[in-house]
Amino acid sequence: MRYAMAIDTKKCVGCSDCVVACQTENKVPIGYCRDWVTESVHGTYPQLEIELRTERCNHCDDAPCVRCCPTGASHIVEGGIVLVEEFECIGCGACIESCPYDARFSHPEGYVDKCTFCMHRVNRGQQPACVSVCPTKCMYFGDLDDPRSEVSQLLKTRKYKALAPEAGTKPQIFYLM
């Protein structure tokens, strides 16, 4: 089992519904977020391109946040999901510093928080909240170890990239181009 996400930049309109759905599903306090949307513009008028991306924790195979955690609060569970056990987290912030994706933040309750791939939903057979709400259906979630899964198929047939591959963390969020 290897959970991953494929996100189709050709369809995303950058509406940020994924952000709001994550916040209400996971009770993320107002003013914080576990996922976010970026826009990059290339070219000069009128020869232009825009890339819109919904970003979050990349649930890396070789996760520096897990390696640097002094208490073991940051850990990896079944399916490669990177989690923080908030009871064990002392809020030192080493993991925040180590993440090449800026995907972690200090929760006002004193621990570090981040995307969980909505594990509580996935375990019940549901899609992560961001995926299930997206009005453009640009996000696909599934098991890369299953060659028939939608994510496996998409990565086989479409051009894609991951972010900051040079960090060498083996990220598991892929952007279809």
Binding site: G31, Y32, D102, F105, H107
Partner: peptide
Amino acid sequence: YGLGDSFLSVFD
């Protein structure tokens, strides 16, 4: 957004 915010040390 919380990215880069200073963190609190309260354990709760």
